[in-house]
Nucleic acid binder design. Structure first.
Lengths: 224, 224
DNA sequence: TTCATAGTTCGATGTTAACCGAAGCATCGT
DNA sequence: ACGATGCTTCGGTTAACATCGAACTATGAA
């Protein structure tokens, strides 16, 4: 049954990550879904057997993509029904609630707080988001310099964008990635506002008391 | 999550039964899905909470229908994906395999054998099936009279059709209902070809050795 | 009123499947 | 050759949920 494939939270997270049309590797998908590679592997083979995704081997990577636009269409339809029912509440994947609150996504902040930050930046007009790309406004550059002592000019990178929207598996919305996202996260760490959980391999990010307060002052709930 | 609602076999059976557009009572749906009323009640409230179906009270009955054509549309889309993947294999509901082989659906034969019978009748040109209605051919009338000593003329009924296609939950295909379906089943019983399971409340139908043989001779696997 | 039917709620049971650790290929880089 | 990385397979644990029996509510019939 196809529906039961989509029904599982972890698989659903993977599929939404693939909705962009891009092909992603198995480990990227595992990361997006917040599960280990072993578990992801099992899910991916099930999705493949169900004809929803197809793999492409490339070196030691396996890239997966949706098998076709019809799949994306049905997934959108399901999302539409969920929306209509006000049923959009996030069915979180497995494991720790702390992971949903704040965690590391590669090198930047993800989870509830990560999404909240980007939301706030949008409503404060610090960034302009057009379709797939994000751009910092003049206001935004000033803000980063003054509030966080981050010089945008130093963030340019040949292969990596400064701002990038990254899909958040626990929130199903975007948080800030790119070199700016990384810079912000490391600044948080330097300022002793937050620290990665000491447990080996953990992606949880713990905020300090003052960190929480400062974060709220800068990116507190937007009223838009 | 909407998809997980559709993913469960029992719920999926109920939904496909509702795909006709008609509203069905809770017990009818339980019957179609092959589960007890208690279980059905739980499923129905979940489907209602998910916004897929809506109830209508009428006396002591609760009629359920799909909330809209968009729901039906998404369900069709899912079925389409399943089809495309050659993934149409029946994910049966719970319980006894005997129930899937042959059982009573109100008063006629359902399950694997029920579906097989109607299939065979079609390929033998005993019936003509147009969209939603089924009609016995002249050949069919002769067949019923000779092979089963059933006189079609006596089967007319003011409120009930002689032939009717009834959706089979375990096979997802039609079997024969209506007064003819009932007549055939009671003939099978009289001829000692089959008998309802003596266990109280059981819907299982047990075929005798000779019954199996005779049935196969009349409705053996069609080669169409 | 009393009985029967339709449906729900509650509690207990059982099965399924997601999950991860550990170990096993395969591929790439050196 | 060797180690590192990406991914898979295997085994055992755990949590979620479908399932049913029994008891309860509501509606209709006698």
């Amino acid at each position: 049954m196809v529906a039961s494939l989509v029904g599982d939270p972890a698989r659903s997270n993977m599929l939404t990550a693939l909705m962009t049309g891009r092909a992603l590797t198995a480990s990227e998908l595992a990361h997006q879904a917040g599960i280990t590679p072993q578990t992801a592997s099992s899910h991916l083979s099930k999705l493949e057997a169900g004809g929803l995704i197809e793999p492409e081997k490339q070196g030691r990577h396996r890239y997966y993509r949706l098998t076709g636009p019809d799949v994306a269409h049905v997934l959108e339809g399901l999302a539409g029904l969920a929306e209509r029912a006000g049923h959009t509440r996030v069915r979180t994947g497995p494991k720790e609630p702390a992971l949903r609150r704040a965690r590391i996504c590669y090198d930047h902040l993800a989870g509830d707080l990560g999404v909240q930050m980007l939301d706030s930046m949008r409503s404060q007009r610090l960034v302009r988001q057009t379709k797939q790309s994000i751009e910092l406004t003049g206001e935004g550059k000033r803000f980063m310099a003054e509030a966080l002592q981050i010089d945008i000019e130093t963030l340019a990178h040949p292969r990596r964008p400064v701002c990038k929207a990254c899909l958040d598996w626990s929130e199903r919305r975007h948080h800030l990635a790119g070199t700016l996202g990384a810079a912000v996260m490391s600044r948080f760490t330097e300022l002793n506002w937050a620290a990665r959980d000491p447990a080996p391999g953990s992606r949880v990010v713990n905020f300090t008391r003052t960190g929480e307060k400062q974060f709220a002052a800068l990116f507190g709930h937007a009223q838009d």
